[in-house]
Write a protein that binds this DNA or RNA. Structure first.
Length: 150
DNA sequence: GCCAACGTTGGC
DNA sequence: GCCAACGTTGGC
């Protein structure tokens, strides 16, 4: 079982949206590294921190769980979607995604707060210039953050 | 709104 | 294979 951190802009899809939907297909990822994490490493049961990015208060705001392993992203074939990709074919889809299930909301754990902890200094999220929307989280980091959320 | 950092594209 | 140009991300 692995641990992850997934980013979402709350204006686009927030933790409350996931709480309402219960599960959601994590479509629209158009970055190869992020895709590869989903395709090659994510398994049902994997746990993820849900992080709000590009907003007033960037923060971990909840926990989600992989509920379905990677499968082709339908939006790549939809000409009306902003995620349409004319190089993708049904025989050879370029983009895949997993589904996430809502686990729980947490008190917001802000980026500023995360940066205060030495134990988290190596987190990919905190690395300078990091833009990756899906990043692995070490088990030790996961446990440490769970502790902060209590 | 600004801008640094990063990923992708495409000409050569 | 190199690298300039461009588009995007995301904190501030």
């Amino acid at each position: 079982m692995r641990y992850w951190l997934i980013k979402s802009e709350p204006d686009a899809y927030s933790i409350d949206d996931l709480a309402r939907d219960k599960t959601t297909p994590w479509t629209g990822v158009r970055n190869y590294q992020a895709r590869n994490f989903m395709r090659d490493q994510m398994k049902p049961g994997d746990q993820a921190f849900f992080y709000h990015s590009n907003c007033d208060e960037p923060a971990i705001v909840g926990i989600a769980e992989v509920s379905k392993a990677a499968y082709p992203d339908a939006t790549q074939f939809d000409r009306n979607s902003k995620y349409f990709d004319d190089k993708a074919t049904t025989d050879n889809p370029r983009w895949l995604h997993v589904d996430f299930r809502f686990v729980r909301k947490t008190p917001p754990l802000t980026l500023t707060e995360l940066r205060r902890h030495k134990a988290l200094a190596k987190m990919r999220l905190l690395a300078k210039g990091n833009r990756l929307s899906i990043t692995p989280v070490d088990p030790a980091e996961w446990q440490y953050i769970i502790g902060l959320l209590k």
